[in-house]
Design a protein around this nucleic acid. Structure first.
Lengths: 331, 331
DNA sequence: GTGAAAGCGCTAACAT
DNA sequence: ATGTTAGCGCTTTCAC
């Protein structure tokens, strides 16, 4: 069954397409004609073509979101925040997951650009930065999440966490509860990861506690966590400096690190303290102390940036919060 | 900075727009002209307008997804599955969350329709069924997830779980581990919920175990869970039939029910067995036995239905799996 | 192989 | 208040 066009409605109602367009979009029309048009539209089950409309506007009323890893709890809340604001602004959300793949990343950003999204929110690496800048310059506000951008043009925003502070919070908390030898599991070279580790090292150093490179293990994915932990423990053993706390700098690996610990017969917090990033629904039940980011709020703010301040260039930095539970021996 | 159109590229390359269109879409052109056009496109940073393209096709290469509740782990995996095959099919995913609100539901479905999505995947109630049928009839395949549809026209699919079997699995498992008085927390009147409870009741009955209505508590949201559990226990107390197992028929409430139990000083599984729906990352660590649905696979199949079999009408029913851990006293 | 021109469904000046 | 007409950016006959 072919879809009715505005022309069909016009014919059915005995008016011109311009008139139909007017009643549909609230122009000046007689009540009588309006009624006729509405009747015709209903009879033909007319559904306006948003694509065609967007051609005129030059843009689609859609906000693009490119996420690197949908399995991370942080990103889930972020999306919910974006969706909330988008819906309120009569926007849709166009979504794509890059599965941590740089090629998919540039491809998805390009596709979003081709679809003329009104704005783009992305939590990705640098690979698509060239296009992002161009998009911003041509009037499509972009928001980079979880990373700051150097020298941003108008329209290019960034939203991130104060990662140094997140690390400091961890270090301070751990030392306050008597831990002196912390080991960290981090997912690697991304700025956020590096900064969190740095903040941790800073806070520890201020209290005379060391965090040597040997105490930092890198695990890129969940499957590498076990080996990373083992290597960490082995090095600690060599140095005769047994670790009494494990910090995980990414919420994505929380489950993996926690299971690795318990799988090795370690009891939290008696044998070892555990402190990780990003709050999650089960953290309370498990008594896991976390440093939380306001992920939902960050999603809302990201969307608000594209909706409300398209041609500024703001760098929003959110503050982390430590939520103490029992995994560091708090009670 | 104004965006380059195909006309700009044509002018820059000294050819016609038709020729540009040909080289962009792989028509018959000389290598020389092709080179000129590509050079011009690159120089002008030309990005094709996917919106305009879609006008001709009559459809956008986009798959719409309307979800009732993004916070449920089931839906998250579903979306990842959809995204995966959509990407493989050069489609984008247009996403909207209804926050369990019927008005948002119809609004979002309409918007998806207006955007001429090539297909729609939705996990919603009946409120939008009228439009869904029409969409299917006009050539837009729709997939209803987590519910079956009566007398579907071609193009209207459904994907669901064998909920009766899910309930049976629970009943069988519980009775196998010696539980005789089960109480259930369910989120209400949705067919999936009712069927799971029914299956449970059936399996229990076959073993001579009752599941009276008083043993079923309804909690619509997380906040109502505490009260529902209290009422359940109170009724069991009156009937002098203390409950030795709690079943939760929706993954959405797993956390809430579990915490309600522990908050009341109950130890799982010693004081009470706990069995819930939908597997989740922490279930292993917590030792929670679940009846899992293949959510990721269901998302993939849903997307494949719209991509590969747009004008059939298939009702896919997936089988649940019980994943035994320790929350029912398994060891 | 390439260009001119018509048209996709709709809006936005201009007319009337 | 309503109709006519010219596009929006692109694809697609149909000539050449």
């Amino acid at each position: 069954m072919k879809r009715a066009t505005i022309g069909d409605v016009a014919a059915h109602a005995g008016v011109s397409t311009a008139t139909v367009s007017r009643v549909l979009n609230g122009g000046a029309v007689t009540a009588t004609t309006a009624a006729k048009v509405w009747a015709a539209a209903a009879a033909l089950e007319y559904t306006p073509n948003a694509l065609t409309k967007s051609i005129f506007a030059g843009r689609s009323p859609t906000i693009g979101v490119v996420i690197r890893d949908l399995s991370s709890p942080f990103y889930l809340d972020l999306i919910r925040g974006v969706d909330e604001v988008a819906t309120a602004a009569d926007s849709l959300v166009m979504f794509a997951n890059t599965f941590r793949d740089a090629d998919r990343e540039v491809a998805h950003v390009r596709t979003m650009d081709e679809h003329r999204v009104r704005g783009l929110i992305m939590t990705t690496g640098e690979s698509a930065d060239g296009r992002t800048r161009r998009m911003a310059e041509s009037g499509v506000p972009c928001v980079i999440v979880a990373r700051t951008v150097p020298d941003p043009p108008p329209g290019l925003h960034s939203i991130s966490l104060n990662n140094i502070e997140a690390g400091r919070l961890m270090g301070t908390h751990l030392s306050a509860y008597g831990r002196t030898a912390v080991g960290v599991v981090t997912s690697g070279r991304r700025p956020s990861q590096v900064e969190r580790t740095l903040g941790l090292r800073l806070a520890l150093a201020e209290r005379g506690l060391p965090l040597p490179p040997e105490a930092v293990a890198v695990a890129d994915s969940e499957t590498e966590v076990g080996a990373a932990i083992d290597a960490l423990f082995a090095r600690a053993h060599e140095r005769q400096a047994p670790v009494d706390a494990i910090v995980c700098t990414t919420g994505r690996l929380t489950v993996a690190v926690h299971s690795a610990l318990t799988a090795r017969g370690l009891t939290v917090p008696d044998d070892i303290a555990f402190l990780t990033m990003d709050d999650f629904p089960w953290a309370t039940a498990l008594g896991i102390t976390v440093v939380a980011q306001p992920s939902y709020e960050m999603g809302r703010e990201a969307a608000k940036l594209v909706v409300e301040r398209p041609d500024e260039s703001v760098a929003l930095v959110f503050e982390p919060t430590l939520i103490p539970r029992t995994s560091c021996g708090e009670r």
